[in-house]
Structures are given as C-alpha cells and as structure tokens.
Design a protein around this nucleic acid. Sequence first.
DNA 1: TTGTATGCGTTATCAC
DNA 2: GTGATAACGCATACAA
Lengths: 359, 359
Amino acid sequence: MPRRSAETPDATPGAAASRSTIADVARVAGVSKATVSRFLNRRDELLTRDIAARVEAAIAELGYSPSPMAQALKRGRTRLIGLVVADVTNPFSVAVLRGAEQACQEAGYLVMLFNLGNQAARELEAIEALSSYQVEGFILNTLGSDPAALAAATRLGKPVVLVDRRHAGMQSDFVSLDNAGAVLLAAGHLAEQGHGELLFISEPTAGVSSRQERAQAFQAFLATHDGHSGHSGQLQGSLFECDEQHPQALDAALLAARQRAGSRRLGVLASNAVVTLRVAAALARLGWHFGEELGFVGFDETEWAPHVGPGLSAIAQPTGDLGRIAARCLLERLQGHQLPPRQTLLPGRLIVRGSSRKV
Amino acid sequence: MPRRSAETPDATPGAAASRSTIADVARVAGVSKATVSRFLNRRDELLTRDIAARVEAAIAELGYSPSPMAQALKRGRTRLIGLVVADVTNPFSVAVLRGAEQACQEAGYLVMLFNLGNQAARELEAIEALSSYQVEGFILNTLGSDPAALAAATRLGKPVVLVDRRHAGMQSDFVSLDNAGAVLLAAGHLAEQGHGELLFISEPTAGVSSRQERAQAFQAFLATHDGHSGHSGQLQGSLFECDEQHPQALDAALLAARQRAGSRRLGVLASNAVVTLRVAAALARLGWHFGEELGFVGFDETEWAPHVGPGLSAIAQPTGDLGRIAARCLLERLQGHQLPPRQTLLPGRLIVRGSSRKV
DNA sequence: TTGTATGCGTTATCAC
DNA sequence: GTGATAACGCATACAA
C-alpha cells in the first residue's frame, strides 16, 4: 500500500492520521533522511544555509516532530523517568511527585508514573513494566518490602533514588526528611508546653523505614529525658501502633495514657496525616477535644490542619524539595557521574497552632 | 563491537546490562526470530511441541520480555493511555485517576500521566508530548480553555474522553457528575432544613464548564422557588465568586448574606473543596461557626470533612466510577466501535453532618 | 510447521 | 557538505 500523500488532510474518522516521518520531511525538502536528521540533532555544524532553510520549512509545513519511540530504539535513550508511588492518594507522595516532575521537565525528561495502590506485591511488576518502557532511572516512594524489586532495577543497571523509605540492603541514593530531628522538634515542643506524659501514635511499622526511624527517635527522646524532671515534673511516654481494623484499641490507648498522665498534661504525637485523622475520629468518639484533654502535634502539614478544632500543630515536610532533589540526584547519575550512594536529609518545620499550646 | 554474550553476568556498574532481545532467545533456542515471535503472539497455533518448549526455556533462561517500544514501532499500538490532569494536588483528580488506572490495568493498558500544575498553557504541550509517545487515546481532566489542545488530539485521530469539564465545540465522550441534580440535592436539603437565605460560593467561573453548570443549576433552583414560601418563609439567594487573592471579599459577602437573611437562617453551598477551605478560613476570621451562624453543604467529600466543626455536610462524587467509566469508554473506542459521542452523568450523594442540620 | 526477508522511524557509519 | 545504507527490536508476508 502506497503511503498516503502528505497533502491529503484525511478526515476519515477512526483512521489515525499517520504522523509524518523523517522520510516525508526529506521528500518535501528534496534532501536525504540523513540530512534532516543532522539538522535536527546537530543543527549548527555542517549545513548549507539554503538546505537548512528548506528542511526547516518542510518540518514546519508538515508539523513534523520526531518519534521518541524510534529514537529510543536507536539510541537506547528515552528521556523517561519512572516514578513509583505506594499510593497516589497520599498527599505527601503527590507533593513529592510535583517537585520531581518539575525538575525532570526542566531537564527535558518526562515522568512515567506507576501507582501501587498500596499493594506491595505490585512493586516488582511496576519496575518491570516501567523498565520495559526503557525508563532511564527510577524514583521510588514505595513500601520497600520487596527486595526483588530494587534488585531488578539495579540488575538492569538503572539508577534508583529512594524517597522517604529505605529499602533493605540498598545501595541507592536516598532522600528524606530528617526524621530524628523532626521528632525531637515535635516532642521537645510538647514537653516545653508542659506535657509531661507523651504518647507517640504510629501506623503499624511493617518494616517501613521512616516509621521505624520516627518511633526510635521518640524512644531516644524519652531515654534522654527519663529521670530528668521537665517543666511539669517527670517526663514519661509510650508508643502505640494503631491498626486500621481496630479503632477501639486507639480509644483505649488514649484513655490509658490519660490515666497514666494523672495530673500531668497528655501530649500526643501522630506519625503521619493518616494517624492524625484516626486520632480525630477517636476524639470524636471519646468526646475529647484537641488542646483540652490532650496536646497534639502531627507529622505532615495539610490544608485542613488549620481548620480542625483549635488548629492542629504540625511538622511540615519540605515535600517539593524532596521531589526536586530526588530528581536532580537521579539526573546527575544519568549524566554518568560515578558517585557513592548519597543520603540527603532535609529538616522539618514545626508549625504551632492551638492544639499544642499551653492553655 | 560484538554483542556481549548472554552468559556474561556483566556486573560492571553503570554499564546497563543490555536487555536480551528476541534474537538472543532465538539463538539460545536454536530457532529463528520469527518462531520466537510466533510463540509470543499466537502461541496456540502452528507450533511443534518440542520447539515451543525450547523457546519457552530460552525465554525463561534469559529473563526475556519483548520491548514495548519496538512493538509499538512495528504495530502502531502502544497499549498506552494518556491521562492529562489539571492539578494532581486536587483530590478529585487523584480519585478519578485511580479509577481510570485500575480499569486500564485490567485491560492491559498502562497510564501515562501528565500534570498541568494548573497552567492552562501547558495543555497543548501535554497532548503533544503524550501523543509523541504514541498513546492510543486520551482522558482529559483539564481546564479546557485551549481549543487547540483538543483539536490536536482529534486531528491525530486519537479518541478522547473528557472528565468533569467539557471543552468548547467538543465531539468527544464526556463523563461527569450530574451537576444540576447534585445542586438540587444540596440546595433542596438546605431549604428543607429551614435555611431561607441561600448563598452559592464558587471559584471564578473562568469558562470551566462544571462551575458554570453548578452556578446555573443554583440559579434555576432559585427561580423555581422564587415567590414560593418554603419552610421558613420566602426563599431567596445569591451567588458569589471568591477570588483567591481577595479573601476579605468573601468575608464581606458572608456578612452581607447574613444581613439579607435577617431572621431567616443562612445556608451556604460551596462549589468544591477548595472553596470549602476558603469558607472555613473566613469563618475563623469572622468568629463564626459552621452550623451556627450559617448552615453549610460543600461539593466534594473529603477525609477531613467529618472533623471540621460539627462535621461538614458534603456532596460526594462517585470519583472512582467516573474514572473507571471514562477508561472503559475510551477502551471501547479503541476496540474500533464507531459510536456517536456519549455523555455519562452520574448522580452525587448527599452526606448530612452537623453543619447543615436543623438546630 | 518453520525460516527468510522486509519495514516500522531513527541515528550512525561510511562513502562521495 | 551530503547521500546511501545498515542497524535498533520486533512482527509479518511469503517462501520453503
């Protein structure tokens, strides 16, 4: 079948108006494909002025743009970055995504997103799907529970940057909030505001590194201050993992903590926004109020934090920067820089609202 | 340079372990490339048992999987769907994304996401970038302000499904909430709960169809009930567009509405979650409270709606279904079904909480 | 039933 | 400076 001539508008619905190719441009310009290709890739060197002009005109006339697919096939470079996210519903992940996307776009890369929908089992699948599309590197914000996934990526020789969550035995670059510092910031603030009994509430750790780090930092904080008497006498605290399935267990944990507190004030630290919402639900069931029966600080700043109760104090993560830095980190490796695995830790910012202020 | 032999593990870091190709499989299995290809695509017909076994073994040994890029180049089919979103930060968009993604995945398609970051100017750019990767169709949840964008998609003969927002002069399938019905539901509820003065608050319409539809439906509701005396005397209402830049204008609008209400109760209807947050901020400035100085219903159900004030009543959109239906709609067209443009309108669901209940 | 040859749209290596 | 031509990895018409 002869190629459809370029002049034919081809209004036939359904019959995709086949994109014009480099061959079409060459024919219209009356030159060879090689010349067109040269014009495109190394337009400055070795080109007669009038030939360059003709090629340029032909490209404009046909609205030609090269096929990244074919280019990828030939060059082995796709200018594609694979971004795997545990859950797009998570605002933290989305914020990171935005930062990464922006940095990639500036560098002429396109981001291919794969959403796990919190199914850890799909982690390997994601990496394979993405790498079959020849993405040049990965940004991973996943559970990190499947070692095979990370192995697959490195086996393929593709650089990986991990965000927020480490993977077991990883050799990759890593970008994250300074969890230890952030916990200190929050717990210190609660103590300073006169909360003598602290409760750290987390999702089930389930091997997620950031959750572990935050819990450990909290324990370290307690150990440091144990025996010391703070602003309101003895400082003590405990940890609780709140399971989605058993909300009443959270209620019980809160009641128990209040009991332990006695005359001291109870301060609660929620390890992320999901936990914050669960705590809010628990308070509603108990008839408690933020800033009254308990002081509160939660990880992750959200748009709704100012409007719940007296305003929820929060640890804001530099999400955009995390994404941007992760992307830049990856892009540097793509340039071929041989560097040892780097870790970048960014500080959190405490935003104080009514929920944690001394009455 | 001779191809690296398959047995070499090639641990050289940085030197991407080149994926094995169909040629490698053919060589290992001792057959031709065509045979391998046939095994892959039409494995049932025409294949000697032992040859099939050999090919299968070779594939397993090499961990071979075909390159979608090369397949796309050859077949013209990529199994890629382009999804353009005005703003990934918008929970509505993300929820739609999830539904669409799931449906596409089930059909063996991969979703390529392009985020506009609310820059309308990038709409055309998005469509061109995506279509250069040969996506087979588009799901668009964009501003719809750039007619050239939609034109570009249809010019390329690629089917398009619009979600939530219509485009000017569109010929495409369209999936959305039944905005008129939803407004009736919300306004009717407010009236029924004894709110005699209604205020509809929207973002600047700016040509976004869903905003227009909601505003018009509200006006229609007022027209219908004008003169009629409802549960609390005369029913009246007005509309206000709240600009992000001038929050104090919103405060003034609320005060004015309260004034007009006189002894009647004031009911406020927010046209989306962003507006709801702005109203919450305004109430904080005015010292008002949801459910007291005003009754409230907002479009879009959010995770935080139950925890703001006495709980915010909301119109929940069937976001997951919207995405799923949009994807299925597109996939049907991809199968080659020639159908006229379809519109699918899904009903909203009213969730009543403290903010709108009769005291 | 299997192998050979060709082309998808590019880029790169040669000649000219 | 420019033009043939051979790959890249795959699918397919055709030959055997």
